[in-house]
């Protein structure tokens, strides 16, 4: 038993959500042809097909690049603090890839661990994620290597599967997803969209974890990551990277305290007030990123901090990213690359 929706009806539905005042986030063509997840103004901007993955991720729906957490004002010698209410505007993410959606349950651990982040949780509760199962993939995709796949349902509230003749099969995954498409779909018992196998498995996470445990000080880090330039193109566009910085922005009258994205790849990230930097060279920063994703986070929360979307590799100006680093690590682990 399948339920389907015609693409035109889907787009009309998107416009209806917008008319209801909901925030709708989806892949759009920006600037010089780059596909990015961005807030939609109309369904006509939405690009559902014809690309493998957007150049960024959907994490902005729950964890914006910059978020005010409170404001302050100076009144003579007094300081007046004002809370900022968490944003619980209803938000629908449409056209996400399963590897994007899968990051949300992973992020939930972090934002509800020792401290429950009310800003994250409010946005998370107000967000409904509609994914499109992948029918194509490229050399940078490796979802199957981290236990996901082209139609993995983790984090999705509903999933669309592209059927012939301008139809989408709609699979509701959660109650939110069911409610979203309730009464909008047509039963079509004859349509059953086959699911692609996805990219071939490229490494084994158990092998990687073993390597990471035993090779913290290995020279392999230096050799593999020598070309890393230390930008945040990988981390900022990663669906699971979640580091942030807290800064005050204001003037003599007052200002705001903001939570901004930050990246472990920046040289300034770990600089102490004393001037000492425990991660003094880029190799140590790359090691941190990989160790965090494939050993530290799994040990702490039982989930890998990577969904195999390949966005880091696609964005990396020097073709590094998680995949190429892990493949190089796997080669070292197999002994096929000699460490200098």
């Amino acid at each position: 038993m399948s339920d389907v929706i015609a693409k035109d009806d889907l787009l009309r539905l998107v416009d209806q959500w917008l008319a209801e005042g909901k925030r709708v986030l989806g892949p759009v063509k920006a600037g010089d042809g780059v596909i990015l997840y961005a807030p939609l103004a109309a369904s006509s901007q939405l690009v559902l097909e014809g690309f493998v993955h957007a150049a960024n991720s959907i994490k902005e729906a729950v964890f914006p690049r910059s978020e005010t957490i409170y404001t302050y004002k100076f009144n003579g010698h007094e300081i007046e603090l004002s809370d900022v209410d968490p944003d619980s505007t209803q938000c629908i993410v449409i056209g996400a890839r399963p590897c994007d959606a899968a990051s949300l349950p992973v992020l939930d651990h972090l934002f509800n661990w020792d401290y429950k982040d009310k800003f994250y949780n409010a946005r998370r509760a107000a967000t409904t994620v509609v994914t499109v199962a992948c029918s194509e993939y490229d050399d940078n995709c490796f979802c199957t290597s981290v236990g996901l796949g082209p139609a993995a349902e983790q984090g999705s509230d509903a999933m669309l599967l592209k059927a012939p003749d301008g139809w989408y099969e709609v699979r509701a995954v959660t109650d939110k997803g069911t409610a979203l498409f309730n009464g909008k779909t047509t039963p079509a018992p004859e349509i059953k969209v086959p699911i692609s196998d996805g990219p071939a498995k490229k490494f084994d996470t158990v092998d990687i974890e073993t390597f990471l445990k035993n090779n913290y000080e290995s020279d392999a880090w230096r050799d593999i990551t020598m070309r890393c330039l230390g930008c945040g193109a990988c981390a900022y566009n990663c669906p699971t990277c979640h580091c942030f910085d807290i800064v005050d922005e204001g003037d003599a009258a007052g200002g705001r305290r903001v939570k901004n994205w930050d990246s472990c790849q920046f040289g300034q990230f770990t600089v102490h007030a004393s001037g000492h930097n425990p991660r003094a060279v880029q190799a140590q920063r790359q090691r941190q990123r990989i160790q965090h994703k494939f050993r530290i986070y799994p040990e702490k929360f039982g989930a890998i901090l990577c969904t195999g979307c390949g966005t880091c590799t696609r964005n990396c100006p020097v073709s590094l990213g998680v995949l190429n680093t892990l493949e190089a690590i796997a080669a070292v682990a197999r002994g096929s690359i000699e460490v200098k």
Partner: peptide
């Protein structure tokens, strides 16, 4: 254009 910038500083690092 600049509203899309997330300040990853790739422009600076390369």
């Amino acid at each position: 254009e600049l509203s899309r910038c997330v300040k990853c500083y790739a422009c600076r690092e390369v």
